[in-house]
């Protein structure tokens, strides 16, 4: 982070904040931690979220769930597309932040940002298709019309990948919210700034407050209360992938209310975390329930003979 813009003017630094319920609070704990670039140079002080921040975020996500899950799939698609539009417009900022966070050249960071935008567009298109792909009528042996439809699981805690600070982040958050869930996202512990900046994109993209909530801090400290929270319905453990003991502890805690658990890659989860590959549908179906509704079809009696 340079102190000046090269023309002698002192730059205005940004205070990075959490994103909870559509607002940008500091951690209620008042704590921050130092975030550095790939060469250990100071970038910013990020909020170090507490258990209370995690609980507040769950409350916000629950409050937003009814409206978001009840929105039309078309509407959710438009909102996701709007995120892509906003990100495109602020691409330069993200190229800089991703380059700093991940130690990438500007060209490589630009490719990451472009892929992130494209991933959002991809999921924007999924919102009104997934129900047809994974749902449908079942040909039951009786006079019933029987339809299976996917529905969002509810509030999902998402431990974002530790390495891929923007593309990985978008790749785990977009499928969760595209399908109508609301999310409490724990940003990469050492590379949280792109996530915190993405919050500003979300806030200006017609995403209702509380649909995505972003927390920064120590992953283990924030993830533990989320995994144990009785009003969280699912948890994506991707960000705990580097710590098998932590992932296991979180899965044990998640069993208390039978959260849907997406295990880290290579540990029962996806084969690998290659965020440049076609994501498939797995990250969407991991947090979808199937509801099957039976209706009697009745009978028209002998008039059926008029076929």
């Amino acid at each position: 982070m340079s102190d000046s813009d090269g023309k002698g003017r002192l730059t205005v630094l940004k205070t990075y904040k959490l994103y909870v319920g559509g607002k940008f609070p500091r951690s209620e704990s008042g704590r921050v931690y130092e975030v550095t670039d790939a060469k250990s140079r100071w970038l910013a002080n990020a909020p170090r979220s507490s258990r209370k921040d995690a609980r507040d975020a769950v409350v916000a996500a629950r409050k937003a769930f009814g409206g978001w899950s009840g929105a039309t799939a078309y509407n959710r698609g438009q909102v996701l597309y709007r995120i892509a539009e906003m990100l495109e417009g602020r691409a330069d900022q993200f190229v800089r932040e991703v380059a700093d966070a991940e130690g990438l050249s500007r060209a490589k960071a630009a490719a990451v940002v472009e892929a992130s935008i494209d991933r959002l567009v991809w999921y924007a298109g999924w919102t009104d298709k997934i129900a047809q792909v994974v749902g449908g009528a079942n040909p039951v042996a009786g006079p019933y019309f029987n339809l299976s439809s996917p529905e969002p699981t509810g509030v999902v805690a998402v431990l974002a990948p530790q390495q891929s600070s923007l593309l990985g982040l978008v790749s785990v958050v977009a499928p969760v919210v595209a399908t109508g869930n609301t999310a409490v996202v724990v940003a990469s512990e050492t590379r949280p700034l792109p996530a915190l900046s993405l919050s500003e994109v979300l806030a200006t993209s017609d995403v209702p407050g509380g649909v995505v909530n972003v927390l920064s801090g120590r992953t283990a400290e924030i993830a533990a209360p989320l995994a144990a929270h009785q009003d969280v319905n699912g948890i994506d453990l991707t960000g705990a992938g580097g710590d098998a003991a932590l992932a296991k502890d979180l899965e044990v805690a998640a069993a208390d209310n039978l959260k849907r658990v997406l295990r880290p890659s290579g540990q029962g989860g996806p084969a690998a975390d290659d965020w440049t590959q076609d994501p498939g549908t797995r990250r969407m179906t991991a947090f979808l329930e199937t509801k099957t509704v039976w209706h009697p079809t009745g009978a028209l009696g002998v008039s059926g003979g008029s076929y």
Partner: peptide, 29 residues
């Protein structure tokens, strides 16, 4: 709006091999 894996409308306890069965929340996954 019912958070349940199977909903029967004007009928109950119908099952079929072609019809997926299972729960939401603490009814399992």
């Amino acid at each position: 709006r019912l958070r349940a894996g199977v909903v029967w409308a004007n009928t109950f306890n119908k099952f079929d091999p072609t019809s997926p069965f299972g729960g939401y929340k603490e009814s399992g996954y």
